[in-house]
Design a protein around this nucleic acid. Structure first.
Length: 430
RNA sequence: GCCCAGGUGGUGUAGUGGCCUAUCAUGUCGGCCUGUCACGCCGACGACUCGGAUUCGAAUUCCGACCUGGGCGCCA
């Protein structure tokens, strides 16, 4: 019976493992093989005079990164990694690896991100890369569990849509039989429509597509969005929920991914302090102006330099609230007493924006008015506007970038590290 | 899209006009080695992105193309 390498211990006596040949050190009469599976690395020690012909011929033929099945006696040895080693009586090659390898899995020689992504399957054999995606998997699981436990209904909205109705970002056009269609930039309109259906709390985790020609370490053209929408609440309600979700996720990863965190050199994952500070847009640009020396006009977007300056000052997760209505989407609810300001917010990590959300406009006529004031044509929004005529509850929601959440949590230098097969301005394969 | 920096064995690099038959490491192959853990030692193999120009001579300078990294912009 094959067991995971992590579970191999001297107490088990005999063990059988299957894994890839990570490294070979042949000292002559004695050879060491490091065998790796997704749970760890085991030293297989071969005293050549004491093992069978079959073992000798197997080890002679094997190449690095070939897949082998090895079984034998486990011995406790202080000198070996993990305090144990396996002396094989069976050493079988299950699948040979070609040579040379496209990159060095053992990481003695580094490889550039581009080289790594070209051979992502091999790159992902590297323990640190495996660790990132084990943690990402845990994050996704936790997010789902958290939202289900709060009574959310999971929905799946279409990714192929008819028109670029939201404005803002560029969309990818696709051919849809005889019509033109687009890949959806966000589930925004659909999750709002489900508020009109009375679902009350919905969430969706799925891909979003943006055809921006950006070339940065924090943008992707296909990203994963964690989206929620909640009825009978306001922006404060969903901000609290977001804060709880982030903290819960950090704590959960800290508790359940110790091995993976260790592989990444993280001894202890600090849980963000709550409540996250709420900084108004006005305070934010004032702070940025003071730090950078550049004046920011009220109503300007917060650029990279400003965002960085504010992040360095805050040093932790924080919200920017009370944005000018003019620079937020039409569906963000303006304050009743001051319609120039909207009930919109961004959740910021010191390094970048993680999420943005708002209380939404639920009044049909106000929504039409806001669409017009953005220079858009309400006629193009008919399918979206219709639910607002038949009892739309007040509601609020947000969208959270899954890659950015993982990237900032693990201090990854490039968002491409947080997604298996990134799609960026230039990369369409693998 | 703009700007900057790059493109040298499988991988990561050194090399700014002749000293390049191109450095080092890793890798691969062969040899030696019974406690390695970046094993060590000896030997071998393997590369200048493409096209044009300048020059007696180009990896090195210039022009163009393609590709890559980064910064900015754009981006609910």
């Amino acid at each position: 019976m094959r067991i995971p390498i992590r579970e191999v211990s001297p107490e088990s006596g005999r063990a059988e493992v299957a894994g890839w040949v990570h490294e070979v050190r042949d000292l002559g009469g004695l050879a060491f093989f490091l065998i790796r599976d997704r749970t760890g690395i085991l030293q297989v020690t071969v005293p050549k005079k004491k093992v069978s012909e079959a073992v000798l011929s197997g080890m002679k033929e094997v190449s690095r990164e070939s897949l082998v099945r090895v079984s034998g006696i486990v011995k406790a040895i202080d000198k070996a990694p993990g305090g144990r080693e396996l002396i094989p009586d069976c050493f079988e090659i299950l699948s040979r690896s070609g040579s040379p390898l496209p990159l060095d899995v053992s990481e003695k020689v580094p490889a550039e991100l581009d080289t790594r992504l070209d051979s992502r399957f091999l790159d992902a054999r590297r323990p640190r890369v495996t660790a990132v995606f084990q943690i990402r998997s845990r994050v996704m699981r936790t997010v789902n569990e958290f939202l289900f436990s709060r009574g959310f209904i999971n929905i799946t909205s279409p990714k192929i849509v008819a028109a670029a109705t939201e404005g803002g970002t560029e969309l990818f056009p696709i051919a849809y039989f005889e019509k033109e269609a687009f890949l959806n930039q966000s589930p925004q309109l659909y999750k709002q429509m489900m508020m009109a259906a009375g679902f009350e709390k919905v969430f969706e985790v799925g891909p979003i597509f943006r055809a921006e020609e950006h070339n940065t370490t924090k943008h992707l053209n296909e990203a994963t969005s964690i989206d929620i929408e909640v009825s009978f609440t306001d922006h404060h309600g969903v901000m609290s929920l977001l804060e709880e979700l982030v903290v819960h996720t950090y704590r959960d990863v800290g508790e359940h991914c110790q091995g993976a965190l260790e592989a990444l050199g993280i001894d202890r994952l600090p849980t963000p302090k709550t409540p996250f500070p709420r900084l108004s847009y006005g305070e934010a640009i004032e702070l940025a102006a003071g730090k950078t020396g550049e004046s920011i006009q009220y109503g300007d977007d917060i650029g990279t330099a400003a965002e960085k300056a504010i992040g360095e000052h805050m040093g932790e997760h924080y919200f920017i609230v009370d944005w000018p209505t003019a620079i937020k989407p039409y569906y963000a609810m303006p304050y009743e007493q001051d319609p120039e300001i909207s009930k919109a917010f961004d959740l910021m990590h010191p390094r970048m924006e993680l999420s943005s959300g708002a209380q939404r406009v639920h009044d049909h006529d106000l929504l039409v008015q806001q669409i017009q004031s953005k220079g858009l044509n309400p006629e193009n929004f008919e399918f979206y506007l219709e639910p607002f005529r038949y009892g739309m509850p007040p509601h609020a929601g947000w969208g959270l970038g899954a890659e950015r959440l993982v990237m900032t949590m693990l201090s990854l230098g490039n968002i491409r590290e947080a997604i298996l097969f990134p799609r960026d301005r230039h990369r369409l394969t693998p």
